[in-house]
Design a protein around this nucleic acid. Structure first.
Lengths: 193, 193
DNA sequence: AATACTTGCTAACACCTGTTAGCCTCATTA
DNA sequence: TAATGAGGCTAACAGGTGTTAGCAAGTATT
């Protein structure tokens, strides 16, 4: 017997919207599309939400919160910089795999946020990227990593991690930790023997 | 003195559309938006193009053609599998950096293609990914690469390469070849010393 | 029993969507 | 000089867009 947690109508709306936004994109998803999936009229949605964009905001900022939350674990890592990078990759991938739909929306649809949300979002993105850069810089200074352009490295690493949302299936045989670990290994040690 | 190549109106339309599709997304770009950028009325566009989707099709399939074209050079590479992978990365990145706008549209907006174009596109994508997988498999069999899930590897590698479109600036100090080479180096040898 | 909250409906609004029809002007070609 | 084609216009179409107003029924709380 499982305990069925009762979801509010608002949560149901956000859930279905996330799936649709991922599938068709935010702009190409109409409120009537969303209503149909829920079996109600489009106008009825507005008893629960303020606007279409509010849903997108919720998705984007909830994901951002989760990424920042996960970083706390990275800060506790006391090993060398390679260990820190591995930890960061694992925590990052854990967040993504926990909700692949929301991640996809988070990565692709944030540009449809209006101001001031867009600026706030970009500031957070910048902050987060800076944390990765710091690990890289520290690792280079200590001689642990190859010297290279930090930003270039960070973007390349994050793009490999980001892509997880596109192929990770919870039904597969890899746990989020394993995926993160394997990705970190590829990044740190490369393809060659 | 430079020779100014005269562009047909159709080419101008496709160029501006590519920029807009990248900036706002295909679905969020209206024909009136596009017309405004060109300084004409929306209806006037239809003297030159058949439909909005036709523009997207042109962009997507032209990019696909360029990727396949570039592969010819990869096939001529006679070195080991690491050399082949490096060559593939360089050729791939060259195509992306040559037109970052069209690449962004190619990577993000293809899902708005209607049938049968969508299926054709996906088949090509699959074919191309298979070519990367083959290099990986061969390299693993010959003992040159670490044993690992081929598809996982391919997706990770391609996602790092794909991301180039997002940050490459022709005005920067790295040539496409250098970018491809550096990316290949990171993929092959990893971050660690 | 009275109240408030949740959830939904229909009708409608003002505006935006891709696209077509029909017409005009101007530069090039026959 | 006549004909052609490129390029653009206005007006209009049929339908889709997010959203609001006003109302009604059912459920939970006081």
């Amino acid at each position: 017997m499982e305990t069925v947690v009762k979801k509010t109508r608002k949560q149901q709306i956000e859930e279905k919207a996330t799936k649709l936004f991922r599938q068709k994109g935010y702009a190409a998803t109409s409120m009537r599309d969303l209503a149909q999936v829920l079996g109600i009229e489009a106008a009825s949605l507005y008893s629960h939400i303020k606007s279409k964009e509010e849903i997108l905001q919720k998705i984007c900022f909830r994901m951002a919160d989760e990424f920042f939350d996960a970083w706390k674990e990275v800060e506790m890592e006391s090993g060398n910089h390679a260990a820190k990078m591995e930890k960061a990759a694992i925590c990052y991938v854990k967040v993504i795999t926990k909700n692949t739909d929301a991640s996809a929306v988070f990565f692709h649809e944030w540009r449809h946020l209006s101001e001031p949300y867009l600026s706030e979002f970009l500031a957070m993105k910048n902050d987060y990227e800076g944390r990765f850069i710091k690990i890289l810089r520290d690792g280079m200074q200590s001689g642990e990593f190859h010297e290279a352009d930090e930003k270039f490295m960070m973007l390349t690493i994050l793009s490999s991690l980001n892509w997880t949302h596109n192929w990770y299936k919870p039904s597969g045989n890899l746990s989020p930790e394993e995926v993160g670990s394997k990705l970190a290994n590829l990044i740190l040690n490369g393809l060659k023997k």
